[in-house]
């Protein structure tokens, strides 16, 4: 079941992982200019994928939980419920 939702979620996870890893790196290397560039590039990608994912497949953040006037946050499956 390799659908568009899964493919987009994978891209979102990958961009977020760069942020997760670089966040730790920058904590102990706060003056690394190359690291800051990598972090900022990943953040822009993440924002793009997040916006695209939420528009197509529903909220990832509860703050974006209202879709067309409806509380959509609780409607989509929770992440551990992945049906394969």
């Amino acid at each position: 079941m390799c659908n568009e939702r899964e493919a987009l979620m994978k891209k979102l996870m990958q961009a977020n992982f760069v942020l997760d890893d670089m966040r730790l790196y920058l904590d102990t290397h706060p003056c690394d200019e190359e690291g800051i560039k990598i972090f900022e590039a990943a953040r822009m990608q993440r924002d793009e994928f997040l916006m695209e994912y939420e528009a197509k497949f529903g909220p990832v953040l509860a703050d974006n939980g209202v879709t067309n006037g409806q509380w959509n946050w609780i409607e989509k499956p929770w992440p551990w419920q992945n049906e394969v």
């Binding site: 979620m9 996870m13 992982f17 990832v60 989509k76 929770w78 551990w80 992945n82």
Partner: peptide, 14 residues
């Protein structure tokens, strides 16, 4: 903290 409705790494156990 803010919750994100996704896992950090996918888990798909059949």
């Amino acid at each position: 903290w803010t919750y994100e409705k996704r896992l950090q790494y996918p888990v798909n156990i059949k």
